[in-house]
Simulated assay, not measured.
Amino acid sequence: MNVNNVVAQDVYRVWEQIHSNTLKPAKLKHRKVGEFREVPLPRSVREAIERYEAKHGTTQDGYLLRGPGGYFTEGMERRLKRLFTDLPPDKGVGMYGFRHYFASHALGKGIPITDVAEWMGHKSIEETYRTYRHLMPGSITKAARTLDAGLWEAA
């Protein structure tokens, strides 16, 4: 997480990812060098970032959670959890847990799957659909009700 990537009050720009083998910055999957994706930045998350930065500072290049030997690794999750003090202290919550929470919550609240797929960095919405389709129950019922209401308005 880099404070320099907060490009608006509600937007975080993702330029890189930490490569799982080298634990060093690498280009984003499914993107060319220099390409990025922008993701929503909830106010509560932005404020947590600001609190953490005020208390602990950043590295010279703006990273919040960079260990003495390099970039963020799975072992630093406890530090990340300190950013979000309101989260329950579940032992099973890890980086992928945060990703799944984000996608699940967004889809469950009706955010279009195309947007969620882009924010997650998935190559296609098929990947997002296969993983999260079960979280969109009732979409057929919702569509039927919406169409029905439209038909009554047209009559």
Rank of each mutant, 00 (worst) to 15 (best):
V3M: 13
V7S: 11
A8P: 12
D10A: 07
Y12H: 13
V14S: 03
E16A: 11
E16V: 02
I18V: 15
I18K: 07
H19K: 14
S20D: 06
N21S: 14
T22N: 00
L23D: 04
K27A: 10
K29V: 06
H30V: 06
K32A: 15
G34I: 09
E35D: 15
F36R: 07
F36C: 10
P40G: 04
L41C: 08
R43Q: 12
R46G: 07
E47V: 00
I49R: 12
R51Y: 13
E53W: 13
E53H: 10
E53V: 09
A54N: 12
A54S: 10
T58A: 08
T59G: 03
D61G: 03
G62L: 01
Y63H: 05
L65A: 04
G69T: 05
G70F: 03
Y71A: 01
F72Q: 06
G75S: 13
M76Q: 14
R79W: 05
K81Y: 00
L83Y: 08
L83S: 11
T85L: 13
T85N: 10
D86R: 09
P89D: 05
P89G: 04
K91H: 13
G92Y: 00
V93I: 15
G94Q: 12
Y96S: 14
F98K: 08
R99V: 01
R99G: 04
S104H: 10
G108C: 07
G110S: 12
I111K: 04
I113Y: 05
I113S: 08
I113N: 12
D115N: 12
A117S: 14
E118H: 10
E118W: 15
W119M: 06
G121T: 04
K123G: 10
S124A: 07
S124I: 01
E127M: 15
Y129C: 02
R130G: 13
R130F: 02
T131Y: 06
Y132A: 04
R133T: 03
K142V: 09
A143N: 05
A143Y: 00
R145F: 02
L147W: 09
D148V: 00
A154H: 06
A155P: 04
